[in-house]
């Protein structure tokens, strides 16, 4: 389906509601089965390095200061100062107010700068305010924008409005990559996750992202599986590849490797790259570094040897 200005709400709705339903029990069993794979030794080492390269190292707190953001940027560029072979993270993710500080700290490093925008995390602000938020972030140097959809409008069935808002933010973001946060913890059903994924992709999203990390339920394996299937089917039908970013609640290396296994088994190699898959996380990085240190030194690592974010 291609959506144009002429596409009516009813067409959009009948398309989204015409998507096959998600088998809840099936998708949960499949995700649980894929989570049992054992990844060891050299495979584990390369999985850890890949996961580090996929991390969007995030700080989204009211208490963020320029100093904390600069420290986070330094950590993102060189996560393990004791080991130069440790790769940098994919991006640093901050609030728009902190984007200028982060842009200066990241200049020339190759690490992307992602900024949440559009009245993150609720999205409950007038569209003009959200667009201005986006433009500010891009002007400050963000090359990736993480926007939130209006869950209220989506749940009320006003798909057209959600669609148009994404299109407007995409336009405001210009050349910056647009990640669309579906906030799956508030969408209630897997069917809604599938519909929201398609809606975001049809509207031009470069990435679809599970969560803000600010609600009770964040990224889960089954939700990510539904989204991975959506980007795979979307590419089959439209020939455009869209990335996926689970965010929130992914804290351990074990969790991260489960996601990598799932990508490999459902959408394949094409998505096993930081350009197409990201982890929105903060504490995950330290666990990855600890596991990496365990593999290189042969003894268990402790949190005392890594920076507190």
């Amino acid at each position: 389906m291609t959506v144009t200005a002429a596409t009516g709400l009813s067409d959009l709705r009948s398309f989204l509601h015409g998507l096959p339903g998600v088998d809840k029990v099936g998708v949960e069993a499949r995700a649980a089965a894929l989570a049992t794979r054992s990844v060891k030794t050299t495979s584990k080492a390369s999985a850890i390095d890949l996961a580090i390269r996929m991390v969007d190292l995030t700080t989204l707190e009211g208490a963020d200061t320029p100093g904390k953001v600069r420290a986070l940027c330094a950590k993102g560029i060189r996560p393990d100062p004791a080991d130069p072979s440790c790769p940098p993270v994919a991006a640093i993710c901050v609030y728009p107010a902190m984007a200028p500080v982060a842009a200066a700290a990241l200049a020339g490093s190759g690490v992307h700068l992602a900024s949440v925008a559009t009245a993150f995390p609720s999205g409950q602000a007038p569209l003009e305010v959200r667009l201005a938020d986006t433009r500010e972030a891009v002007a400050a140097g963000a090359d990736e924008i993480d926007m939130v959809i209006s869950r209220g409008a989506f749940l009320a069935g006003d798909y057209r409005r959600v669609f148009e808002e994404i299109v407007a933010v995409k336009e405001a973001a210009g050349a910056a990559h647009l990640k669309v946060i579906l906030e799956t913890g508030e969408l209630a059903t897997y069917d809604n996750v599938r519909r929201a994924s398609w809606l975001a992709m049809l509207a031009g999203a470069d990435f679809i992202k599970t969560s803000t990390g600010k609600v009770a339920v964040n990224a889960t394996l089954p939700v990510t599986l539904v989204m991975l299937e959506a980007v795979r089917d979307f590419r089959d039908r439209h020939g455009r590849q869209v990335g996926v970013k689970p965010a929130g609640g992914i804290k351990t290396t074990k969790d991260a490797i489960k996601y990598l296994v799932m990508i490999n088994e459902t959408v394949g190699d094409d998505w096993l790259h930081p350009d197409w898959f990201r982890f929105g996380a903060s504490s995950l990085l330290n666990d990855l570094l600890m596991q990496r240190t365990k593999l290189t030194t042969g003894h268990y690592a402790g949190p005392d040897y890594f920076t507190l974010d």
């Binding site: 240190t293 042969g298 003894h299 268990y300 690592a301 402790g302 949190p303 005392d304």
Partner: peptide
């Protein structure tokens, strides 16, 4: 030996 070398002990 694993406990002796463990960095968090």
């Amino acid at each position: 030996p694993w406990l002796a070398s463990h960095a968090d002990v």
